[in-house]
Design a protein around this nucleic acid. Structure first.
Lengths: 160, 160
DNA sequence: TATTGTTATACTCTATAACTATA
DNA sequence: TATAGTTATAGAGTATAACAATA
């Protein structure tokens, strides 16, 4: 199950043993690195008053436009009640607003505000600064590898 | 120190050319993907009774050998009291043991047990299975990009 | 006095279960 | 009945502060 299409394209002539790409060890390393990095990212941005996920939600709304709480919950892979709380906090700060959907009374449309947009613009640089600083400590090959893998990581995170 | 290389971003006309250094937008994407992925990884492995960090600590001890709580805390980027709790749980399960350092009474040496080794061996495949399955859904180019970036991600997570 | 580790405590994030309102 | 969202509640994970023991 782990293999399947992940079997190496092994152009090597003596491909007696085809290893999946990435192999199990690499996947384990990936997993560990993601967990540590996420922990550091969370702590890092405790500086200002919004959590990592809250900023992610806000950024998503300004990137992709208004959305329902359910859609946002699925996108961020949190449960609906968690999204309710996140939206609550962001609304309290005036960074977004909730409007009832006129055609379906069950639904709510979450949209950004001007103040929220300003916050996103101002904070994005600050929030990525720490990570940028860290990445800057790596050598060029590592930075290139990260840049090349970023879209794949995004797709990986977005998978259903 | 931020040299500006990772943040500077004069958009060039030939945007098709990959930039050697991740630009701010790529870094922001990386950040978001890492946060979502970590959340999914955590939830995924709630199946058995150990948290993601606990498994990471256990794996580290079996990979790198006995270590002090302080060293482990620095390696995983958690605070010492958090590491104390993690070690406590792992010790209760018989997966590792704490021995006083004979030459320095303040220090403690945390070592693995046979039972812990067996657990690590048995659980690693299980724990990486979900991630492997997800990665398997990506196309080959994405999988290769991830494999190529894994060491860089590990180094990024390990930075002081 | 500085260092290592622990105990006590509290907070943040997220989840599950139960409820409301609309379709 | 099914769906969207919310309220209520609980639990996991981690942190800070205060403390003990040793150097």
């Amino acid at each position: 199950m782990v293999t399947g299409t992940a079997l190496g394209s092994a152009p090597s002539p003596d491909a007696a043993v085809a290893r999946p790409i990435p192999d199990a060890e690499t996947i384990a390393a990936l997993r560990g690195a993601v967990l540590v990095l996420a922990r550091r990212l969370r702590r890092q941005q405790a500086d200002d008053d919004l959590s990592a996920t809250e900023v992610a939600v806000l950024g998503r709304i300004y990137r992709d436009g208004p959305a329902t709480p359910g859609t946002l919950a699925r996108a961020e892979h949190v449960q609906p009640p968690s999204m309710t709380r996140i939206i609550e906090r962001l609304e309290q700060r005036g960074y977004l607003r909730r409007d009832p959907d006129p055609s379906d009374g069950r639904q709510v449309l979450v949209s950004g505000t001007e103040r929220g947009e300003k916050f996103v613009e101002d904070s994005r640089a600050m929030r990525t600064r720490w990570l940028a600083t860290q990445i800057d400590k790596l050598d060029e090959a590592d930075r290139e590898a990260l840049a090349a893998a970023a879209p794949a990581l995004v797709r990986l995170a977005d998978l259903a």
